[in-house]
Design a protein around this nucleic acid. Structure first.
Length: 110
DNA sequence: GGGCTGACTAGGC
DNA sequence: AGCCTAGCCAGCC
């Protein structure tokens, strides 16, 4: 749920609720938080949260299902490996069945 | 306080 | 289809 204090906290909270084997986009999170044009802020918030070990950051990708943040993880393949270990099929840094894996917070969290 | 940056997106060429 | 530009907003010089 929203904390209302920090936008970061809202982002983190939404990301934590992403079910295993699913993924969402920055824009979807931004839209859910009421920041229709705040996709960059979401991504930036995520980038500033590499300390948040409990945060399944690998479940957040861009709108095309591409793992644009893969290079920021421990290794360039960590993000893909984590997704695949959860059942998400990734090919060349891109989620294959993206439409099926996509998790929309606006619909799921209502 | 002004300008730069970025894990984004949509639109134009 | 691929590259470029503009808009977006919060944090950090």
């Amino acid at each position: 749920m929203k904390q209302g204090n920090d936008f970061f906290n809202d982002v983190y909270d939404v990301v934590r609720q992403i079910p295993k084997g699913r993924a969402t986009s920055y824009g979807a999170i931004a839209a859910y938080l009421g920041e229709k044009r705040g996709a960059r802020v979401v991504g930036w918030a995520m980038g500033s949260s590499y300390n948040q070990k409990d945060l399944p950051a690998h479940r957040v990708v861009n709108k095309q299902g591409e793992l644009t943040a893969a290079r920021l993880f421990e290794t360039p393949t960590t993000m893909q490996e984590r997704l695949e270990s959860e059942g998400v099929k990734v090919r060349n840094g891109k989620i294959q069945n993206w439409e099926q894996c996509f998790w929309d917070p606006e619909k799921e969290l209502h």
